[in-house]
Design a protein around this nucleic acid. Structure first.
Lengths: 204, 204
DNA sequence: ATTAAGATAGCAATCAATTACTATCTTGGT
DNA sequence: ACCAAGATAGTAATTGATTGCTATCTTAAT
């Protein structure tokens, strides 16, 4: 019953998209490093060699995956920030948008925060570094804007607060990775954010 | 010139220690998954097969590594906490002891926080989960003690604050992994901790 | 002389990547 | 419309390198 379907011939662009999608899925289950081109091929009813009609090397696949993630994530974050009433509210909306994004794509943090980072590799590491430092700069910028509106004290170190912000996401991801699932992630996030928020607000 | 040195025969126990030490070092450079038994053997002027005179499987090596890390880290943390004057001070001392420990062994966070985490579910994962959840419980316990001394408000969610605490460490590690080295890690830690501390202190 | 550590060599499995070939789609000249 | 010619996606098989691990021999230390 299931033999005839999915035997179509697709354009290279469509196949590239499918490979990226499948790679993300598999990375969620087995971890990035243990996903083989054979796994990808199996997951899309294709032969292993066919993968290399669409990507020159396996590394190029992961590069494309990261680019895909970047575009998706940035789109979500930008939209969340644009709906905000003030800089602090923008940070809060971005945070929960990010948590929701992770809930939908559990593989993402693994891609960004773990293995590929210390892969002495050139392009991949640079790309991920760019995403994270760009994210950090965005948060720090919002905090500076909050300063000028006296929403946070002037003597707050924006960059350090941004580090804490990103760390909070990492901590929540790890927490939900060890214990519960999506539901727990959202719930934990709602309880953790106020502590961070209070940490950056007016000090003695 | 370099042929005759390091040709000693060692006891199995000594070799096990050296294998563990070398494994930690190599994991810092190349990442855990990409360290092969051949790499370890090369790093200690030994044959690859000789490794298996001292460990039955490669997995056993990583297990021993994690156990080694746990003992070292817990020892450092316990000592830091025992010198403290009050629960909040204990958390602060533990934090900076942890940061100093990481500065000395940059491979550790990678072992605990990244790759091995999403390694299906074996003994390794269980061991790491135990370390982290134990750590979290310890911080949460100190926060509860701080409540009874009115150092932090009663309505603080201890577990969420502990998640933020661990996330702060993760964020700092990633920050220093992307940018500077040890110096930057210590400096950043000193600027970030006060934000966390203010976050858990008395609220409006 | 006995024993345990290390050397040498090799196995079976797995991996990314390449090859030679086939099937299918696209296109341009008549 | 037609239909050969080229382009492109896919298959099947194989390559060369690497992996964890093992069987057998060699040597050093007690």
């Amino acid at each position: 019953m299931n033999q005839e379907i999915a035997k179509k011939r697709m354009s290279s662009e469509e196949r590239q998209d499918e490979i990226i999608r499948v790679a993300v899925e598999l990375a969620a289950d087995k971890g990035v490093d243990s996903v083989t081109t054979q796994d990808m091929a199996d997951a899309m009813n294709l032969t292993q060699g066919a993968i290399f009609r669409h990507f020159a090397t396996k590394n190029d696949i992961w590069f494309a995956v990261i680019v895909w993630v970047r575009e998706r994530l940035m789109k979500v974050l930008d939209k969340a920030a644009s709906d905000a009433t003030d800089p602090l509210n923008a940070i809060e909306r971005m945070f929960f948008a990010h948590i929701a994004f992770i809930s939908k794509h559990p593989a993402i943090p693994r891609l960004l925060f773990s293995e590929l980072l210390h892969k002495k590799n050139g392009k991949l590491r640079q790309l991920i570094e760019g995403i994270i430092s760009g994210y950090e700069a965005k948060v720090a910028g919002l905090l500076d804007a909050a300063k000028s509106q006296s929403l946070v004290p002037d003597n707050l170190d924006s960059q350090s607060a941004a580090v804490l912000y990103i760390g909070m996401i990492q901590g929540l991801v790890m927490q939900s990775s060890i214990f519960g699932g999506k539901r727990a992630l959202q719930q934990q996030a709602e309880k953790t954010f106020p502590i961070f928020l209070h940490g950056i607000k007016t000090r003695s």
